[in-house]
Design a protein around this nucleic acid. Sequence first.
DNA 1: GATTAAGCGAGACGGTACGTCAAGTCTTCTC
DNA 2: GAGAAGACTTGACGTACCGTCTCGCTTAATC
Lengths: 192, 192, 192, 192
Amino acid sequence: MTEVRRGRPRSESARLAVLEATRDLVAGAGYDAMTIEAIAARAGVGRQTIYRWWPAKSAIVADAVLAGHIRLPEVTITDTGLLAADLKTWIDDTAAVLADPAGRQLVRALVVAASEDAGESELLYGHITGPYHEALAARLELGKAAGQLAGHADPDAIADALIGTSLFHTLTRQHDPQRLARLVEAILPAPE
Amino acid sequence: MTEVRRGRPRSESARLAVLEATRDLVAGAGYDAMTIEAIAARAGVGRQTIYRWWPAKSAIVADAVLAGHIRLPEVTITDTGLLAADLKTWIDDTAAVLADPAGRQLVRALVVAASEDAGESELLYGHITGPYHEALAARLELGKAAGQLAGHADPDAIADALIGTSLFHTLTRQHDPQRLARLVEAILPAPE
Amino acid sequence: MTEVRRGRPRSESARLAVLEATRDLVAGAGYDAMTIEAIAARAGVGRQTIYRWWPAKSAIVADAVLAGHIRLPEVTITDTGLLAADLKTWIDDTAAVLADPAGRQLVRALVVAASEDAGESELLYGHITGPYHEALAARLELGKAAGQLAGHADPDAIADALIGTSLFHTLTRQHDPQRLARLVEAILPAPE
Amino acid sequence: MTEVRRGRPRSESARLAVLEATRDLVAGAGYDAMTIEAIAARAGVGRQTIYRWWPAKSAIVADAVLAGHIRLPEVTITDTGLLAADLKTWIDDTAAVLADPAGRQLVRALVVAASEDAGESELLYGHITGPYHEALAARLELGKAAGQLAGHADPDAIADALIGTSLFHTLTRQHDPQRLARLVEAILPAPE
DNA sequence: GATTAAGCGAGACGGTACGTCAAGTCTTCTC
DNA sequence: GAGAAGACTTGACGTACCGTCTCGCTTAATC
């Protein structure tokens, strides 16, 4: 029962060009400094084509994120059997990503984009922080089963805190993985 | 020794009018939608007067924060002798502040302002989150002394995590004090 | 051969509205007091549209003159067969035009516009004083052929002098057609 | 019965500095491009001092002209006994003055200043063109007495025409002394 | 000699217009 | 009918000057 489309179909190449131009510009100048005019110019696309398909600048960014053109580097969490060591590794890996100015720039741009657009906000955060959360929570759950985490500790809450605190440090431009490591120490049972 | 002041002195009333207009507009329309033109108009001030004293929109906001015209409601932490209960109260109080749309709007505006201006960023966060951090860390230290917090737990790291996670929830528009409460449970020793 | 026109074509109505608004304002407040902002407002046109097509205020005035929106009233010179009488009539007619405050205002505005813009200057004067010059010189030539003007007298030089002197009187705000008439008497052979 | 002046008397040096700065700037950038701010800066004078003593930019220029700080080079007319030759010399000398770009610039600036200010206009023209007019008219009168000019010719009208036509040529940026010479030929009796 | 009154340079004030940039819309031709 | 191009109105940008105002500092005449 799909409606019959008449006329020229949407150009996939234009769509891709816009998303890629957005990816490049957002990482370059930042979200605020990026103009729709510049996106159109870099994509070699008419301005109207953008306005036809996206309602706002934040929506283009959101689309680029959902379509996978904008993505933060993956940070996998290892499973050596030792939760404390694995979390320490995760913290270091995350810190490495956020040590890169381009990484921090991207994080800030996404935060600004999301804060501008209530509708896209949850979708955006879900897509960006979701994978980090899933992986962390799963590893914590395993550690809990292995008795390396107190029984009353909530893996979701802890994953949230690790991500939230990382974000907080990025936004405040404090790059201090030690502090995050000390949070983990406070959460894990004291080594005897 | 003091330099001789020449020319008409800066108008304190104009300065105040600008900061108050900024406070009103940032809470109203948000940071991005606020224009310098609108600030000048609402303050009854010439546009040039703003450009003479502040280099950018973010600097006006920063100044308004530092001068105390823009401030988040104070959240004091009680000391009933029971750390767990006091933290629970703090979480609820903080959640109440962030439940108010104006409070969330203000937080997002400040995050955007800070992310636009590397220079002011630390100053800004220090002024806004600093008091929360001090109070929290002090209470945690007391609790630690009272044996209600593990000896190896770092009050600063925990305070950071509570604030960072609150901010994260605000930005992602997840208003869920329960999750924060569960973080506290994970950090505090299990109640017997 | 003609280049392919792409994009939306220039709006003829906007062009006309600008030239007409310029005509009205130049005759009203004068050249200096006329702002581009006011032209745009009166024409109901975006300011950018003016800047897109004209490089300067003087160019708009020049364009309005060349396009015939700004014009001095025509002064035709009669041919009754008597050169002296015809010149006298011309002087009176010209004086009548310059007796009107709007006419003098317009002359001064055009002089200021032309003096601001070396490039347009000749074009402008040619368009404004040209017709006066042609008509006068032609009539003088006829009179010369009829023996009413000395054989060595140069019609072009005399036409120039009549126009130049009229302009001089207008600029100096001396409105004295008699003096111009006496110039003609000095040029024509003494009546016997 | 002059009123007794109290307080600090007007600074003559400031007055002179303003007039000289005006002279320099008017010859440099032209009347329109000259700002009161620039006059004050170049004169090393407070802006208020200018506003205290002169009501408008045109009044400063007028004052500078009247006080002799701005003046066109003098053109004297010789008396060799031959009117035709003397007028030819005058035309050449005048043309030389107007051949200098600075001279033309100054003439245009004064015309614009005068056209802006109805009140000062006559005073200004009187001071600038007056001396030229007096000298020319006197020489023409002598020539007339010597029979080198028709008896019905009006020296004032002719002087006016020579000056007016010179001005006209300057404003239209036609620098053509020949044409002025031909006007003289038309006025003087044909050489036999 | 102290006081008073005005002029002085300096520079901030509320404004207006400048010329530019980008927003989002509209109108043309081309694919 | 989508797309590239580019003109349209709108409105904010940051700057330059406007003419006014307020500082502290002269510089006289008056007390």
